[in-house]
Structures are given as C-alpha cells and as structure tokens.
Design a protein around this nucleic acid. Sequence first.
DNA 1: ACAGGAACCTGATAGC
DNA 2: TGCTATCAGGTTCCTG
Length: 274
Amino acid sequence: MPEMPEVEIIKRSLQDRLVGRTIQQVDIMLPRLIKWPTADRFQAITTGKKITSLTRRGKYLLFGLEDDLVIVVHLRMTGKLLYSSANTQQDRFSRIKFYLDNGDMMQYADSRTLGTLYAMSLDELWRITGLSSMGPEPLSEDFTLNYLKEGLKKHKGNIKALLLNQRFIGGLGNIYVDESLAIAGIHPERKADSVTESEVDKLFSSINAVIRDGIEHGGTTFRDYRDGNGHSGSHQFHLRVYGRKLLPCLICGTPIVKIEVAGRGTHYCPNCQR
DNA sequence: ACAGGAACCTGATAGC
DNA sequence: TGCTATCAGGTTCCTG
C-alpha cells in the first residue's frame, strides 16, 4: 500500500512518540508475519527493550533498539502502524501489538497479511535482501541525474518496470511511477534505453517533485493508507493520471487510459505521453 | 536480461 | 439478495 512518501509520513508521525519508550509486551496474533527469526524469538528479544531511533530506508521502517538490535517492518500492500492508548479498541485487522511503558501501544494492522517483520542485530541486516540491495532514493545525494541517465541507457526493458525496481531506485511504487512518467511526458511502455537526453532531465526532476509533493501532502490515501495517528493524506487530490481512467487529462483533455505494464495497472495520457 | 505469470493473502466492489 | 469475477500503494521466485 504505501510508497516512500507514505512510509516517510508514518515515520514522522511515530518518531517522537516512540523514541525513548520501552517495549513492555509484544502480542503476536499472526506469527507467520515474522520472517526473522521465529515469532517466539522475535517476542523474546524485543520485549523489555528501549526504542532508541526510528528511521526509514525506501519503504522499510527500522526501529532501533538498545543493544544494537533493530526491528524492521515492511508494510507491503495493506500494512499499517497505529499508535494509541493501550485500551483503545483494536483495529479490525490488528496482527501484532507492542505495549509501551507509558500505557500506550503501537499495533501492526494488515488486512491482506502480506507485510513482513524482522528483529535482528544491526550487523545482520544483510539478511534482508530487499533492504541491503536497495538503490538510491529520490531526493537523496546518491540519486543523481547521471545515475538515472546511465541506468536507463543500460536497460533494454520498458521504463516502468525499471522505475519500479527497488534495486534501481528505492522507494518508488505504482502510483508515483505513473505520476513521474506523466509529468515527464514519457509513455510507460517505452524502452528505457530509448529515452532521450531531454526526457531524462524531465524525468529526473519529475521523480523528485512527485516524491517531495507526496510527502508535503502527507501521502496518498487511495484506500486505506493512514499515518501513525490514523490520519489520511491528501496527495490523492493532486494526482494527474493514477486512478483517473477515462477522466480528461488535466493538460489536454484526452481521456486517461489504463493498461497493464509490468503486471501493474498503469495510467497514462495517450496524447501527452509518447 | 527481460517478460510474464504465479505465489503470498484478504477484502471491497462491480457486474450479473 | 447473493454469487462470481476482478482488482488492489509490493516483492520474490520460477519458467521460457
């Protein structure tokens, strides 16, 4: 469900409330969500630990704990982290609860149960391949125009699949890729190596702009995305193509088309994007 | 290298 | 109303 802007907002909404708190109790209602180590070990090594930091890498959240331990969470499609008082009615899809030393809790809720959680020491993070092999993120120093240019040049496949590949760029997902391509005027089925110099320039700035705007608007709430306090974002009101099938393009009025590319629903303007 | 499909899962919604 | 099909902000693995 969430892409990098949504995960960033979740991080910001939880950071101040969690850092410094101690995890007093962990209830795991759905053990198979724990991918490392076992659910029992996860519970044993996190219980009683103080949370020392909360950071994000791509779509992963990393809860730093004392003793150089870390809890890693990937929300996949429908995962949520919700902070509340411990006696609040639990979410309908609550799967894991972290009870804190101040009488509050953070629950991991997930309707499709595709999310993944890990607990390990910092020097074991290499075990999470999606994390350790992740490419540079938009808005970061490592994500340069030249990196994008060279990467596109080397790829024979279509550009949408490449932009979705987290090894190439960390954090982009289906919505923000469609939006980036729309602003840059590039058809999602274009071969990556066919993109021209001036198009790469536009794409580079559109990727950064779309991610920056997404964060500024508190994320995109299309269905069930919420931040750590249960609040919706508003970037859905700023989307150019995603979810706008048959609606007029905001630039030229041509109806937005929806097709399948790289196995994902893909929206674009057939007039503006070539 | 790359495309396509399946798998992991469940819920909301559209269509009949 | 009730059944069936389709789709979903993600990632990984397998086959051709």
